[in-house]
Structure formats: structure tokens, C-alpha cells
């Protein structure tokens, strides 16, 4: 009896403490959110309340102008297709080059593959720094040096991708089943053979799914970088929005293209990841 009463007291005490913590966190979050939004609203050039009334004005304007364009609208879509392809190319090349770099760093930075132990922490730190660099900084700098072109955006996105994918890849590498590697090693396989026949088959499916996710992220990033002068659909958007007045139909066409593309890539990548997960589960 006494023991159970003691236990009950202890549980109640724990419960009270947890409730206190939860309450403290809720209060803290509320303060941060309310204070933050108040501060943000003050710093903003337009207010929230007055903006809310205008919220649908701009989208409405664009849609109306697109509607006015009528039969010419598909032609606009066709006209901006090259810009879209350029953005997709930026994202694809950046993801491929970044992915290749990431594979190198991931092998160097995985503690269980014994490529060269002293280099493991170095590779990890390099990946950390590459990941931390906002694409914008590199893109702006390279645009200044090389001029407006897709290349600065591509290099900027590839740089960040190397760090971001490298971290995910090296986590995949560290989670592999090492028995296959040891088994091949026991048969006298060389380092290269062990990687080719024991490691790659285990990691490639996961690499592919991270790669697809990154491609989607990079399409968005490339579109945004276009807006600061890196070419592709972003630069077209900057032009049509900058002109303001009567370019609403063009803006609408660009929005439609971008949204459709992102939607398609999103669907394709989640379908592919599901398939990879299923084949993984079967084997």
C-alpha cells in the first residue's frame, strides 16, 4: 500500500513537472510568435491589416490579364519554354555535379569505409561549410565576376548541393551492412572491388532517392536565383514584374509554367522514391 502510494506521488510529481515545462514552452512560443509578428509588422513597409484587403488584388490582376490574353495564352507558355528549360538545365547540371562531388566527400567522410581515417573529420567539416553557404552569396559574387549567365547559378547551386547531399550520402554509407564488405574482403577482394560489389549496391537506391529530392529543391533554387540575374525563368519573371502595368499575362504564363513543373517533378520524385522503397522492402 505504502509503496503504491509512494509511486503515485512520484508519478503525480513527474506529471506536474512535465505540465510546468509544457506550459513554459507554450508561453515562450506565444511570446516569440506574438512579439515577433508585432515586430515584423512594424518593420514592414506595408501593414498586415491593410495588406490583407489587397491580398487578392495582384493575383486577380494577373488572372484577369491572362484571361484577356485568351487564345494567345498558350502561345505565351510556348514562348517562355526555353527559359524554363534553362532553369531545369541549371538545376539538373548542378544536381549532377553536386551529386558527384557529394559521392566523393561521402566516401571520404564515412567513418566505416576506411578510405583514409585522418581525412574523415576534414571531409565532414568541408561539407558543413559548403552546406552552410547560401546559394545567393556565391551566385551574386560570380554574376559580378562572370556577368549574367546561367553558369554562376549552376556553380552556386552545385556548391551547396555537394555539402547537403554529401551529408545525406555519408549517413547512408555509415548505415550499410558491413558484413558484405567483410565477406568480400575475406575472399581477397581489393578495396575497389569491395566498394563496387558490396557498398554501391546497398547505397545507390538511397542515393537516388536523395538525389531526386535534391533535384526538386534545386529547381526551386535555380528559379529564385534567376531573379537576381542568373538567367532562366527567374530573369523573365523579374522583367515582367519589373515592367508592371501590362505584363500580367506574361507573369501569369511564367507562374503557370513554374507551378506545373514543380508539381510534376514533385509527383515524379515521390513516385520514384516509393518504388525504390518498395523494391528495397522486397529484397
Amino acid at each position: 500500500m505504502i509503496a503504491s502510494a509512494h509511486l503515485r506521488d512520484e508519478i503525480l510529481q513527474m506529471k506536474r513537472r512535465r505540465q510546468l515545462y509544457s506550459a513554459a514552452i507554450v508561453v515562450l512560443l506565444t511570446v516569440v510568435m506574438v512579439g515577433g509578428y508585432g515586430q515584423a509588422n512594424e518593420m514592414n513597409s506595408g501593414g498586415f491589416i491593410s495588406g490583407l484587403a489587397k491580398f487578392f488584388d495582384y493575383p486577380g490582376e494577373i488572372v484577369a490579364e491572362a484571361w484577356d490574353a485568351g487564345a494567345a495564352f498558350p502561345g505565351l507558355l510556348w514562348r517562355f519554354l526555353p527559359a524554363l528549360i534553362e532553369t531545369l538545365n541549371i538545376a539538373a547540371v548542378a544536381t549532377i555535379l553536386g551529386g558527384l562531388g557529394a559521392m566523393v566527400f561521402a566516401f571520404l567522410g564515412a567513418s566505416n569505409l576506411n578510405v583514409w581515417p585522418p581525412v574523415v573529420p576534414v571531409a565532414r567539416r568541408i561539407m558543413d561549410v559548403m552546406r552552410a553557404f547560401p546559394e545567393l552569396i556565391i551566385a551574386l559574387f560570380l554574376i559580378f565576376v562572370l556577368g549574367s549567365s546561367p553558369i554562376p547559378a549552376m556553380i552556386a547551386v552545385a556548391f551547396h548541393t555537394t555539402g547537403a547531399l554529401g551529408k545525406q550520402f555519408s549517413e547512408v554509407n555509415e548505415n550499410i551492412d558491413t558484413r558484405a564488405v567483410e565477406g568480400l574482403g575475406a575472399c581477397g577482394a581489393s578495396w575497389f572491388q569491395r566498394m563496387r560489389f558490396a557498398v554501391l549496391p546497398q547505397v545507390l537506391p538511397n542515393y537516388l532517392s536523395y538525389f531526386m529530392m535534391r533535384f526538386e529543391i534545386n529547381v526551386r533554387a535555380s528559379a529564385i536565383l534567376g531573379f537576381v540575374g542568373a538567367g532562366g525563368i527567374g530573369s523573365e519573371l523579374r522583367r515582367t514584374i519589373g515592367w508592371g502595368q501590362r505584363a500580367g499575362d506574361e507573369t501569369a504564363a511564367l507562374f503557370v509554367l513554374l507551378i506545373l513543373t514543380i508539381f510534376l517533378i514533385d509527383q515524379a520524385s515521390s513516385w520514384m522514391r516509393q518504388r525504390i522503397a518498395q523494391t528495397e522492402a522486397l529484397t
Binding site: 509588422n41 514592414n44 506595408g46 495588406g51 491580398f55 495582384y58 529564385i224 513554374l258 507551378i259 514543380i262
Partner: peptide
Amino acid sequence: GIDMLIWSLIFIRSFGLGPL
């Protein structure tokens, strides 16, 4: 799917420039 870029452009029109 609309993406941060487009959302930002729409919000800049209605709420002006700033952290909000």
C-alpha cells in the same frame, strides 16, 4: 507547388517590403 519565389512576389505586392 507555388513555391517561395512566387509567394514572395505576391506578398511583396500586398504587404510591402519587410520581414513580415
